[in-house]
């Protein structure tokens, strides 16, 4: 637990940024902890715990996203959990960020979340993704540009809807 404790917040931020549904995010986080705990004896180096946890988390998130595709174009759960104006501006922003991130490629998405939100270093990300540092930087840069475009587009769309 002492190894896990400093990683807990970073892991949870990563999961709940990419998974909007709170229950799902909580399940995935719990699952990651459980899997890591069960397979902890297989871990040779305690320093690899961070990469291990985040790798499990990203796999679980991808699994969930694959399942979401089979739910059709209209995701009822997502619509119910969509924040309204009464949810507060932070919730709306988090939702918009979540929607924009899910439109990015998985490597770019994970890289920018880990770097900007979870606070992982470039080296750590490069270690998890098995990429070079420049490759991670490139992914982060591209993700950032793409994310900006997507968020601007979303804000324009929301303003148009409000205007209507």
């Amino acid at each position: 637990m002492s190894i896990y404790k400093p990683l807990h917040e970073r892991l949870c931020r990563f999961v709940q940024t990419l998974v909007w549904n709170e229950e799902d995010a909580k399940d995935i986080s719990s699952e990651v902890v459980l899997i890591a705990y069960e397979q902890f004896h297989k871990l040779r180096d305690e320093k690899a715990m961070l990469a291990y946890l985040f790798a499990i988390a990203s796999n679980l998130i991808r699994q969930r996203q694959r399942k979401e595709k089979f739910k059709g174009l209209f995701n009822f759960q997502q619509a119910v959990n969509r924040p309204t104006s009464s949810s507060g501006e932070d919730a709306i922003m988090r939702y918009e960020l979540n929607q924009a991130l899910n439109k990015l490629p998985s490597k770019q998405r994970e890289a920018i979340v880990w770097y900007e939100i979870s606070g992982l270093t470039i080296d750590e990300i490069a270690n998890i993704h098995q990429l070079s540092i420049s490759g991670v930087k490139t992914n982060i840069h591209r993700a950032r540009k793409q994310l900006q475009l997507l968020l601007e587009q979303q804000s324009i769309n929301s303003k148009q809807k409000k205007g209507v």
Partner: peptide, 9 residues
Amino acid sequence: TAKSSPLLL
């Protein structure tokens, strides 16, 4: 905003 959100777990 994302970083400041409360932890779910």
